[in-house]
């Protein structure tokens, strides 16, 4: 059974305390972020049910939110998710070519994960980095002014991090 650590449970209490008494449902989005980080980068039904029980909500209240927002992953993803923006301003600066390059380099299509489970390629809509295009989100941060060379370096960096942490 999945469960937050005591430290994370304290964090949940902290989040709930930001909202008025009885309005703990407001904590749902932040707590789902926390659950996704803790439980392997995606939200299983078990994880969502657990969040529902923590916040005293019906499971459906959690499902309907988790399915609405694009940042919650409802199936497993690779350890590193390349979320490449493809909206107008990024397209004008060559995001199509960057997406093609990643596809070819990692030999996967959009929405797919490499067989070693390391990389997932996802296309996303405008992330607010239009002046620094083309760009992708990688975990918590943006990688901007992408070129094929920079993509190569990012892939290498991810591989090195994995080797160092295994």
């Amino acid at each position: 059974m999945i469960k937050f650590s005591d430290e994370k449970l304290k964090k949940v209490d902290e989040i709930v305390a930001r909202y008025p008494q009885g309005k703990q449902k407001s904590a749902l989005l932040p707590v789902l972020h926390l659950a996704q980080e803790e439980f392997g980068g995606w939200l299983s039904t078990e994880a969502m049910d657990y969040v529902a029980s923590l916040l005293k909500l019906e499971p459906i209240e959690v499902y309907e939110v988790a399915t609405f927002y694009s940042m919650y992953n409802l199936k497993p993803v690779g350890r590193y998710m390349f979320e490449v923006c493809q909206t107008g301003p990024c397209m004008l600066r060559g995001s199509d070519q960057i997406i093609d390059y990643i596809k070819q380099k990692l030999n996967i299509g959009i929405g797919e994960t490499t067989p070693d489970g390391l990389f997932t390629l996802k296309t996303v809509e405008c992330l607010g980095a239009c002046g620094y295009a083309p760009m992708m989100q990688l975990g918590k941060h943006f990688r901007e002014h992408l070129t094929p060379e920079k993509v190569d370096a990012i892939i290498e960096e991810c591989r090195r991090n994995t080797a160092a942490n295994n």
Partner: peptide
């Protein structure tokens, strides 16, 4: 003042 993070929705 509290910060509340959304989750991807224009």
């Amino acid at each position: 003042i509290y910060v509340h993070r959304g989750a991807g929705a224009y």
